[in-house]
Simulated scan of single mutants.
Amino acid sequence: MKILFWSVGGKHDSNMAKAIEDFTQRVSHYYPCEWKLVAPPKNAASMSIADQKDAESDLLLRSLDPVDYVVLLDERGKMLSSPELAAIIEQRAINGAKKIHFVIGGAFGVNDAVRKRADLVWQLSRLVFPHQLVRLILAEQVYRACSIIRGEKYHHV
């Protein structure tokens, strides 16, 4: 199984890049893992919020295969504990999923088509975080989930 982290936006912030890469490499010890950064439309500044969300969402949807398992990070999603996230990842691996996509939308989120396509909509917190910090939290939490699956001591109950 392969884990893919997708985020609409530019490259990782230089202050966060090292930490994001560190946790991504840690995840790679369990599953092949990579980031895909989806550039927002070039004319995004002149678009309405709805049009920008639609354009970004179309880019995401065109890149997904129908059999891919998609986890959308969204403030209206379900909150999960780290062990619950681990159980979801483990179940996908047991069921033979080829890919899990963790998707972070753009600054204004995604449209309803992406939300409907998602197999799980996950809310990290009731707090709002900067986009770059969400990338780091996502990579760390997936690493934590992998260590839980393997019964390693990174996660303490």
Rank of each mutant, 00 (worst) to 15 (best):
M1P: 03
S7T: 05
V134L: 07
L64T: 00
Q123W: 00
V142E: 07
Q123F: 02
C146T: 13
R135S: 12
I49K: 10
L120Q: 11
F102K: 03
M16L: 14
I49L: 10
Y154F: 14
D13F: 00
L4K: 10
R117T: 10
S125G: 06
L59T: 10
K11H: 12
Q91V: 04
F102L: 10
D74W: 07
K11E: 14
E152V: 14
L120S: 03
R117Q: 01
D74Y: 05
I104Q: 03
H156W: 11
P83E: 06
K11D: 15
L80A: 07
S63Q: 15
S63D: 15
I149D: 15
A55I: 11
E34F: 08
H155D: 11
K36R: 15
L124I: 12
D68C: 05
D68V: 07
S82H: 02
A87E: 13
E56C: 12
K36L: 11
G9H: 03
G77T: 07
N15P: 01
L60I: 15
S81R: 08
A50N: 11
G105T: 03
D22L: 12
G105S: 08
K153F: 09
D112R: 02
L138F: 00
R150S: 14
Q25Y: 09
N43K: 14
R150W: 09
P41A: 13
P40K: 02
V38H: 06
Q25D: 14
R76G: 11
Y30C: 11
L85K: 06
Y69G: 04
A113E: 05
F102V: 12
Y69M: 06
L61Q: 07
R150H: 15
S125M: 02
F5N: 10
G106F: 03
I137Y: 05
D112P: 00
V128G: 03
Q141S: 13
S28D: 04
A145D: 11
L61C: 08
L127C: 08
D68L: 03
A19G: 14
I100K: 04
L136W: 06
V121N: 13
L64V: 01
P40S: 12
L64E: 01
R135A: 10
N111L: 04
K2D: 14
V134N: 04
S125P: 10
E56N: 11
K2F: 00
D13S: 14
V121H: 01
G9R: 01
F23Y: 15
H156Y: 11
W122G: 06
S125Q: 08
D22Q: 14
I89W: 09
L64M: 14
A55D: 13
L138E: 07
K42F: 01
R117V: 09
K53A: 06
E140H: 10
L136C: 08
D119Q: 09
Y143N: 09
G96D: 00
P40H: 03
A50F: 04
Q25L: 12
M1S: 06
P40V: 03
H131L: 04
S81I: 04
H29F: 07
P40N: 04
H12S: 15
S46E: 08
V121W: 05
G106D: 08
A50P: 01
R26W: 02
L120K: 13
K153L: 11
E152C: 15
V71C: 12
H12A: 15
H131E: 06
V8Y: 05
E84I: 00
